[in-house]
Amino acid sequence: MEISKLKLSGFKSFVEPSTVHIEPGLTGVVGPNGCGKSNLLEAIRWVMGENSPKSMRSGGMEDVIFAGTQSRPQRDFAEVVLNGADDDGDEMEVVRRIERGAGSAYRLNGRDVRAKDVALIFADAATGAHSPALVSQGKIAQVIAARPTERRQMLEEAAGIAGLHVRRRDAESKLRQTETNLERLEDIMAGLDSQIASLRRQAKQAERYRKLSDEIKTAEARLVFARWRDAAAAAEEAKKAAAAAEAKVNETQKAADEAQKAQRSAAEALAEAREEQADRRDDASAHGHRMAALSTQLEAAEQRLADLDRQKARLEADKGDADRLTRDAAEALSKLERGLAESEKALSTDEERRPALERAQEQAERDSRTAELALAKA
């Protein structure tokens, strides 16, 4: 198979639609590390049907979609278109598109196909996502250290018979499914035989049921006629009973009207009684409030009376003290008066001793003033 062109859009670092033309001869891709050289090889493997995120250096298959940068938003899908020609020279266009949350979709020459169909086409062309012709980093070491089975697979792909093995595995799988279906068919046939025997028994039972149904219908018709005759007689009796019941209903209606009138009168009387009861309750509540206020006033008056009694007892005690002080003051005054009389007598006798008496008088006056002060205080 010869690849002529590769288109990428939103795949890893190829955010804008990019086209790589592969001309006849040797085509080289050069550039610094991280510029996306390995992404081209991964894009070829991805469009050929690679489904291992590990092989695509990602944690999930949706990681091949451009994740965005600080200056550019992320993309919602990634698409790779591979144009080439098969060994017969027929043009072929393979498209793989993946959307976030929707999975991958394949198109071959404008038609929707399965991933298995795409892998089979590339296997027939002796290539594919795991072809040894796609040499990535570390692939040479893997080829050198490959086991005999892996080397055999490489040789089969190089010889162009890998597609035959894929078709053989598909044919074997279909054969096993066919054998399984045949076994199930035998089980179904055995089940159908038992169902046929059961259906025959059911057919006999159905024939017997039909005969019994005809007899039952005849008996039911006779029964319906007898019931209709009894119902007609019962209807006549019911009409007579209905007429009697209607007369009773009229009488009952009259009694009900009278009872309703009595009920309305009782309801009016009950409403008046309830209003009067409400007024009595309001009066009783007002009397209760007044009694509570009077009780409060009575308690306050009793407390005031007790305070007055205590004040009276205190005043009587103060009066007794004042009386004692007055008696003491009177006794002191009488003593002073007697002393004054004796002093006057001594004055007439001791006139000649005036200076001494004056001094004594001054002393007596001082004593008198002291006594008067004491009397005044008393």
Rank of each mutant, 00 (worst) to 15 (best):
L298P: 04
A278T: 13
L270Q: 13
I196R: 12
K211W: 00
L298S: 12
A243W: 01
S173P: 00
K254E: 10
K239N: 07
R290G: 02
A259L: 07
L308C: 07
A292T: 13
V249I: 11
R222M: 03
A273L: 11
A221M: 06
A278V: 06
A242I: 09
S265F: 02
D193S: 04
F225V: 02
R229M: 03
R222A: 02
Q263I: 02
A238W: 01
E236P: 04
E237Q: 13
L185P: 01
S213R: 10
R176G: 00
L192W: 11
Q177K: 15
D214Q: 12
S213Y: 04
L199H: 14
M291Y: 05
A271Q: 10
W228C: 00
D307Y: 09
Q311P: 00
L175S: 07
R222F: 03
A233H: 12
Q297R: 13
K204T: 14
L212E: 15
D279Q: 15
A267R: 14
L298H: 10
D307L: 14
K240S: 11
A241N: 12
D170I: 08
K240D: 09
R176S: 01
A171M: 12
A259R: 13
A259S: 13
R201Y: 03
A206W: 04
N181L: 07
A262S: 11
E215C: 01
T218M: 04
